[in-house]
Write a protein that binds this DNA or RNA. Structure first.
Length: 212
DNA sequence: CTCCCGATAT
DNA sequence: ATATCAGGAG
């Protein structure tokens, strides 16, 4: 079976298993998702969701973050790892959004990745889940799951993104990202993956090599 | 490659 | 105790 067919079947199966799969971060605007995604680096969404209610209540626009007192902003996200870096990134990022984009979140990878604290993964998550623009976000879960399933042989996130974009139809890019992430968290875990209860093990290179 | 640097699981 | 976690910058 060719990789496109495998990818299609895998995504179809995962979608049936997890209908309405959605990014786990709570947000109600592109700005909120951008901030939440910056905070989520090397950190679980669950923990990000614990600080964002108070954070979003305190700062409502990009200008609010740009003009925020560093101490206060840091205080609101202190339970998140790398909180100093992230506070600095959010401020600088929002400052640039105000100065160069009139307070609106840009809607292209190139513009987004020029923002401080925003790398390719963050940019693609925002594009896909806030704007509905086809994008594949490659985080540690997508990297691991796509590798195990045999959808890519690359290890560099940017090349994995290329590989996946070639075998997954564009209209499924956003769904594919959230499905692979969710599957990685729940089932295809880094340590002790739950292969026996995996819905897509019949298509999985890792599984078939494990049971030889 | 190193630094950032807190909460949670084990 | 310590390994690891939805990364990005220098």
């Amino acid at each position: 079976m060719d990789k496109r067919d495998r990818a299609r079947k895998i995504l179809k199966t995962l979608k049936r298993e997890m209908p309405g799969a959605r990014i786990a971060l709570n947000f109600s605007s592109p700005l909120e998702l951008l901030v939440a995604t910056i905070l989520s680096a090397q950190c679980t969404d669950e923990r990000v969701n614990k600080v964002t209610p108070a954070l979003f209540a305190r700062y409502r626009t990009a200008r609010d973050y740009a003009e925020a007192e560093t101490e206060e902003l840091e205080g609101l996200i202190r339970s998140i790892n790398f909180f100093r870096n992230k506070a600095k990134s959010i401020k600088a990022c929002c400052n640039k959004i105000v100065e160069e984009f009139g307070g609106r979140i840009p809607e292209s990878v190139d513009e987004l990745t020029k923002l401080p604290g925003v790398g390719r993964k963050t940019a693609n998550i925002v594009l896909g889940s806030a704007f509905g623009i086809p994008a594949i976000g490659v985080d540690t879960h997508v990297k691991r799951v796509a590798g195990r399933l045999g959808l890519t042989n690359s290890t560099d996130p940017e090349r994995i993104e290329e590989d996946l974009s070639r075998i997954i139809p564009k209209e499924l890019w956003v769904d594919a990202t959230t499905l692979l992430i969710l599957h990685g968290r729940r089932t295809c875990k880094a340590k002790k993956p739950l292969c026996e209860e995996c819905a897509v093990r019949d298509y999985c290179d890792y599984y078939s090599s494990m049971r030889k």
